[in-house]
Design a protein around this nucleic acid. Sequence first.
DNA 1: AAATAAAATGAACACTGTTCATAAAAACAA
DNA 2: TTGTTTTTATGAACAGTGTTCATTTTATTT
Lengths: 207, 207
Amino acid sequence: MGVVDRKEREKVEMKRQILDAARRLFLEQGFEKTSIRNIAEVIEYSAGTIYLYFKDKNEILFALHVEAFGALTQAMQAGIISKTDPFERLVALGKHYLKYAFENPELYDLMFVMTAPIETLECREEIWCDGERAFDTLKFVVEDCMKAGYFAGEDSESISVMMWSLVHGLATLHLRRRTMIFPEERRIKILENAYAKFTEMIHNYKK
Amino acid sequence: MGVVDRKEREKVEMKRQILDAARRLFLEQGFEKTSIRNIAEVIEYSAGTIYLYFKDKNEILFALHVEAFGALTQAMQAGIISKTDPFERLVALGKHYLKYAFENPELYDLMFVMTAPIETLECREEIWCDGERAFDTLKFVVEDCMKAGYFAGEDSESISVMMWSLVHGLATLHLRRRTMIFPEERRIKILENAYAKFTEMIHNYKK
DNA sequence: AAATAAAATGAACACTGTTCATAAAAACAA
DNA sequence: TTGTTTTTATGAACAGTGTTCATTTTATTT
């Protein structure tokens, strides 16, 4: 039957519409302040209809979570292929990670800061798989650096966690407005300097 | 009039009761999931009464914010006085900062992650003063290290932001459960290793 | 004891996420 | 085409939210 196929397509199409509306609203006004009724209004359906396509509000967030990680993975790959030298690659990887975070603040939030969805999806393996894959990408680049003579005698995991924490720290301090203690025109520069200093330090490090 | 004095004391006492109840509930179930009615129930008053002592829910959060920063300042001071050598001081400062974050997850959230209150209190100077003071403490210790020959030729601000970002990154990745990609029994060790590696690197760094 | 001032209440408002009986639309069978 | 069944959509209802405010209760002053 071609009908069942079309129905399937329509279902997917409807989910897309909901997700697009939800993403837009989440980006504009945040997760908490966006109501199911808001989303329904945008796509011109009743609130109840949303629940025919997604179990609850968190399920919508989860779907966006998957998409967001897809985009981050792409951004990270772009960083990797932009350089050939292993260490330059690592630096570029961090830069692209930060770029992604700054350009997609709400999505970054959703991936690495939000707790709301996590409680509900604690048992959900896929969530962690995405994060794990991203971390493994970082670790892989770090190990490449080690093969090229960097971080001699260190373990790649510690170096990777250190690197991740630093860029995540820079990203969240800024996204959550904690760089407000600095004058506005210098904020970005200050973050860039901190990252530059960090990469310089780990570059020149000898035991 | 002694009466007006007593009234003043009672007002303070009532505020204390509200704040204590609110802190407990925020710590237990988070800010969003705690309602004014919940707080009122704990102190055995009606919901409306809360609004005679605090303008709104955010005002309660703000009061706790001030308290939380007081406690962090204390924790940082404890780190500083625990050592005499400048660099050991810096390391201890970071350790005590992390300790505070792990022991007071919701308060740490409130200070460095939450966005909800910040929107409302954007214009509020006091908020940023507290954060600025904490950052200045860090910068001061970094500058002491420089006087002792560390970080030659660097500027203390970049080094301080780098340090802050790293510990903040470690703290938030863990508090927001993103270390779940690692096996449970190794999580803390992994964070400690990353911090140890970082301090080691900035310790041995020569331009 | 009466008048005044302060404090506490609880109903009301407009909102939230979610459910579910009902109604409309679409697909299939005769 | 008509009647039946399945799918999809609706909107009222529920229990909750933050917040306001007229009303009542309590405390103080005259």
